[in-house]
């Protein structure tokens, strides 16, 4: 047996900060309060910025300007009480499915609530709704675990979000790996065929003894 490392969950895992880093590349609409020329960044060109003219920028850029009081951020369309109430309802009604939400909905809403709270409408309501949605979805993931078995070769997770993926990854991967190892037919077969050979040779033995006559 060659030495094999078990998959290193630690290294494959994205840290919370890394998941947030990825979310900060999502776009957000901001309304500048100042005039500024176009920014030619490595990650793209943004602006020019005119007071009161909404423009799309990466979230990290919007937050950086917001922190300096140079703009207001607009909540994305999905982040309204109306939409989230509907999502929560659908989420509760369909135990097998996840509703489509942005891949980084947890991080984006968190970042906006931490950094641009005064720009958001109904912020408490929105926060509670997102919390509820997260809980319902996570409960679904957990009950979905019961369906894993040695026969599981693929799991489809439509609309699962980044933070949810990251949460379930260590356990899912470990569980599936173990199932796969113990379900490996090739590990069982060799012992069977060895047994067959032994039986066959036992059959032949008496005949050989008889032949000389």
């Amino acid at each position: 047996m060659a030495a094999r490392s078990s998959s290193d969950a630690e290294s494959a895992l994205f840290s919370g900060a890394e998941v947030e880093f990825l979310a900060e590349d999502d776009t957000v609409v901001m309304v500048p309060t100042l005039r500024m020329d176009t920014l030619h960044l490595i990650c793209g060109d943004f602006g020019p910025f005119m007071p009161q003219v909404p423009t799309s920028v990466p979230l990290w850029l919007g937050i950086a300007m917001k922190k300096r009081g140079k703009c207001r951020l607009r909540a994305p369309e999905w982040m309204t009480v109306e939409n989230l109430t509907q999502v929560l309802e659908l989420e509760r009604d369909s135990p097998q499915e996840f509703q489509p939400l942005p891949f980084h909905y947890v991080e984006v809403s968190r970042l906006l609530m931490d950094n641009a709270r005064d720009d958001l409408v109904d912020v408490y309501m929105v926060q509670t709704l997102i919390e509820d949605i997260r809980n319902v979805r996570f409960h679904k993931v957990q009950s979905g675990l019961q369906n894993l078995s040695g026969k599981t070769h693929a799991v489809k997770l439509k609309n699962l979000a980044a933070m949810e993926v990251n949460l379930i990854r260590p356990f899912f991967v470990k569980a599936l790996e173990k199932f796969y190892i113990h379900d490996d037919e090739e590990l069982i077969k060799p012992t069977q065929s060895e047994a067959d050979i032994q039986l066959a040779s036992v059959d032949r033995l008496p005949r050989r003894v008889l032949r000389p006559r």
């Binding site: 030495a3 094999r4 998959s7 990854r169 899912f172 991967v173 790996e177």
Partner: peptide, 16 residues
């Protein structure tokens, strides 16, 4: 007979 102490990556792991 073979080199059997070499750590290899686990390719039968599962990925998202």
């Amino acid at each position: 007979e073979e080199n059997d102490m070499i750590t290899q990556p686990q390719l039968n792991t599962f990925v998202f």
